[in-house]
Design a protein around this nucleic acid. Structure first.
Length: 493
RNA sequence: CGGGGUGUAGCGCAGUUGGUAGCGUUCCUGGUUUGGGACCAGGCGGUCGCCCGUUCGAGUCGGGUCGCCCCGACCA
């Protein structure tokens, strides 16, 4: 069962290659033989499952319920909301037939031409249309509102170029879809869910995010407002990690979802949708990991503590096993997930490197030397610091250490981000510096023209108008026209 | 869909003027090891991406074709 373990490419040498190697070598995922698709391996999926569980509880705490809607969407649904089609039409997979048959030479199968569908079905790129088509039947009165549904599912967008977790043709996500009686309530919900995402990112993933609202050109297809959380990766690029959309009455009107209000007057329902995907895995990896491999926040690590024995002779191993057993039990009773790896076909050095690669937050090492002294070695993954401690009280110490690591990697990420956020008022200066990454806070005149020029000149885009930035009047660095606000500009994934 | 690469063992690669396939690693067996990626010995594993051509003979030369990777356009 021993695995190939090559040294990782260094982050500073080739960030892209480092990321890709890390995902594969840490056993998170690999590219599938199927075009543009990804296989998430058990270790990677265990992290995603933890994320799901926590997010799901957070959603439910706001009154959201889970449901499930079909994978296939009739083509005609997609054309009902004009902007929405335009946004997604280019990347939809289409089902045209429902049957295969054996070919003439009987050594393969072909599509049976007689099994052509009258109306083609689209594999969902997102589910607004099919869900609002369903909501039409569920919503009649203001008493049916708000309607708050979420679904965990897969979606497909036929991407030209894919990268593990960051962009794959098929990906896993959750999409929440809510219907409301008033504009205010819907807008509030869109912002509320963004707060949930930001809270999740910072508290559990230890990934600091900038919250804000998208510019018109970067908005979700069919939305009136798109709220976003933007995280900074270690190469200074931005990663859009979650979005929440205020959809107005666009889908209510497109799918004729009307309800009778208290005054017995018909009104179109107001909508939001919001989602996060397995892309969060990419954010997690690229925020914390180092040249030794993954660094996982304790809150999401499938294995929080690994214990490695240093053995030798069988009677020595027995003594170590006996000493480790009560430690394992104590940790488990504290709700800490612990793995005791006493496999005898791998040497300790190999295990050290392997669990570091996999990002296990705390490592305990116990050998004959420790047994004599009543000590145990503790290593924390975030700083790679080792110390020798008394076995007595080690479980309590580890519990507290896990909290400390969670906080430390968050603070480290905050520090890195804050050091790479710049206010900038000079376009020439901006063009020169944005190549090297970082978030730039710049005055913007609010026009799509300057936005397009920035993108053309530098590949950087307006990530959002941040909420928490003090807005002072100024002039647009490109056009020189008066600017309403400072926006966050960066190159992104 | 443009521009550039590349296809030989699970993975990483070599293969000279054309002569029938090699290295490292993984994996398996046995032994010795075990406080930072062990060592020794033996073993399994390949229609050289695919098709056509040149030739007595093609991994190698020519033509075609397909896949993959990187850089753009598109995107969570």
């Amino acid at each position: 069962m021993a695995k190939e373990l090559d040294f990782l490419t260094k982050r500073s040498v080739d960030y892209s290659k480092w990321y890709n190697e890390l995902v594969v070598k840490a056993d998170l995922a690999e590219q599938s033989d199927v075009r543009g698709c990804m296989v998430i391996k058990p270790y990677g999926y265990a992290i995603w499952e933890k994320m799901q569980r926590i997010l799901d509880d957070m959603f439910k705490a706001t009154g959201v319920q889970n449901a499930y809607f079909p994978l296939l969407i009739p083509k005609s649904f997609l054309s009902k909301e004009a902007e929405h089609v335009e946004g997604f039409a280019k990347e939809c997979a289409v089902v045209t037939h429902y049957r295969l048959k054996t070919n003439e030479t009987h050594d393969g199968v072909v599509v049976d031409p007689s099994a052509k569908l009258e109306e083609e079905l689209i594999i969902r790129p997102t589910s607004e249309t099919i869900i609002w088509n369903t909501y039409k039947n569920w919503i009649h009165s203001y008493r049916d509102l708000p309607l708050l549904c979420n679904q965990w599912c897969n979606v497909m967008r036929w991407e030209m170029r894919t990268r593990l977790f960051l962009r794959t043709s098929e990906f896993l996500w959750q999409e929440g879809h809510t219907a409301h009686a008033t504009r205010e309530e819907a807008e509030e919900r869109a912002q509320q869910m963004l707060k949930v995402y930001a809270n999740f990112a910072e508290k559990y993933m230890a990934v600091p995010v900038v919250q804000g609202v998208k510019s018109e050109t970067e908005r979700f297809a069919g939305a009136l407002d798109t709220y976003t959380i933007e995280a900074m990766m270690q190469d200074g690029k931005a990663l859009q990690s979650g979005t929440s959309h205020f959809l107005g009455q666009n889908f209510g009107k497109a799918f004729d979802v009307q309800f009778l209000n208290k005054e017995n007057k018909p009104e179109y329902a107001w909508a939001t949708s919001w989602g996060v995907s397995t892309r969060l895995m990419g954010a997690l990896i690229m925020t914390h990991s180092d040249d030794n491999g993954l660094v996982l926040p304790p809150a999401l690590a499938p294995i929080q503590v690994v214990i490695i024995p240093i053995g030798g002779k069988p009677e020595q191993m027995e003594a170590v096993n006996a000493a480790v057993a009560p430690i394992v039990e104590q940790l488990q009773q504290m709700g800490i997930s612990v793995k005791y790896d006493n496999a005898d076909n791998k040497r300790p050095g190999f295990k050290f490197a392997d669990y570091e690669l996999k990002g296990v937050p705390v490592r305990l090492v116990l050998g004959a030397r420790d047994l004599e002294n009543g000590t145990i070695e503790v290593m924390r993954r975030d700083t790679l610091e080792k110390e020798s401690r008394q076995i007595e009280g080690i479980a309590e110490y580890v519990k507290q250490l896990l909290d400390e690591i969670q906080e430390n990697i968050f603070q480290k990420a905050v520090k890195f981000r804050d050091e790479h956020i710049y206010e900038c008022d000079n376009y020439e200066d901006f063009k020169e510096r944005v190549k090297d990454g970082g978030f730039f806070l710049c005055h913007w005149d609010g026009t799509a023209e300057t936005e397009a020029k920035i993108k053309e000149d530098t590949q950087a885009t307006i990530r959002c108008v941040p909420f928490n930035v003090e807005q002072t009047p100024g002039v647009d660095m490109v056009s020189g026209k008066p600017a309403k606000c400072r926006v966050l500009i960066a190159r992104s994934y």
